[in-house]
């Protein structure tokens, strides 16, 4: 075990890994048509520590628990989650109001390769809600900007009105130390930006593949084709990182649900290299 003393939150998690700890909703924000962002304060007063790309199991008391990635700034501020209301649990979570209690277990999993990316150009490719798990990585990249080479965000959304964290994305677009390209699949005449799938932005990308690390998150089909497009650009399979989604019940490698081949997505991921995933993604229904 590391010499660093464990936080109370971490110690409790290790003693009873299936028992949630309490947090309360500090603020909520509507961030996309079916996605809400919750800012949470741990009831024990501790700041919640995590690495970019890790996730928590969130409990809506009386309804259930769901795996949700952290979407906040790992360096400061409250614990932030962005939740898409798609099932009973995520709907209940997304409807929590200010002051409501929520159960938190985590953080779990292996996140984005922030250390490996130091000294390299970083291409971040997000699709739809996939920007949420990538946002902590972007915060880290921008906060420790000098450690990294060129930073590019390529972001694909369904329609202009579906763009997640829109104001923030617009602020990033205005910065000189990050290149931001946003494309949508479907647009009306008012949209002045790119239209086309996100892989299209990759073909336009001007980058030195030998010194580039890619971080990709979005629907699995999108990630498969993004990975192929990055390979076509000359990136190595070991330098492309994807964040995977599978059913999770325990998040500690005990319940079996999230297996993909020999991997437990919860424990060994959710972020994997494309080298590791490629043979697994090639087999249907694995």
């Amino acid at each position: 075990m590391p010499d660093v003393p464990m936080s109370e939150t971490a110690a409790l998690l290790h003693a009873r890994p299936m028992v949630p700890q309490i947090a309360h909703v500090r603020r909520r924000r509507h961030d996309a048509p079916d996605a809400w962002t919750l800012e949470l304060d741990m009831a024990n007063g501790e700041r919640f520590l995590y690495a970019p790309g890790q996730f928590n199991m969130l409990t809506a008391f009386g309804v259930g628990e769901a795996a949700i990635s952290v979407s906040g700034d790992p360096a400061e501020g409250p614990l932030i989650h962005t939740i898409r209301a798609v099932g009973p649990v995520s709907k209940a979570l997304s409807q929590l109001g200010v002051g409501d209690p929520i159960g938190v277990r985590g953080p779990f999993g292996v996140g984005w390769p922030m250390a490996q990316a130091e000294g390299k150009d970083v291409v971040v490719v997000a699709g739809g809600l996939g920007l949420a798990p990538l946002r902590p990585a972007l915060y880290r990249l921008l906060r420790e900007r000098a450690r990294y080479g060129r930073v590019t965000l390529l972001f694909g959304a369904r329609r202009p009105e579906d763009i997640l964290f829109r104001q923030e994305v617009e602020r990033w677009r205005g910065r000189l130390d990050i290149d931001v390209e946003v494309t949508v699949d479907h647009a009306t005449d008012e949209w002045r930006g790119h239209v086309g799938v996100v892989t299209n932005l990759i073909s336009r990308l001007d980058t030195d593949p030998s010194k580039t690390v890619a971080m990709v998150c979005g629907p699995e089909v999108m990630m498969r084709f993004v990975a192929m497009a990055l390979i076509d650009k000359g990136l190595g399979e070991e330098t492309i990182h994807l964040s995977m989604e599978r059913n999770m019940k325990c998040a500690i490698g005990h319940c079996g649900h999230c297996q993909l081949g020999a991997t437990f997505i919860c424990r060994d991921g959710p972020v994997f290299t494309y080298a590791r995933l490629k043979p697994l993604l090639a087999v249907k229904e694995l």
Partner: peptide
């Protein structure tokens, strides 16, 4: 061929919620 493929992906409407 690339545009045909991209059109297919657009047609799949990948980011749509499956709720």
């Amino acid at each position: 061929i690339e545009r045909l493929h991209e059109t297919r992906l657009q047609f799949l409407d990948l980011y749509k919620s499956h709720a």
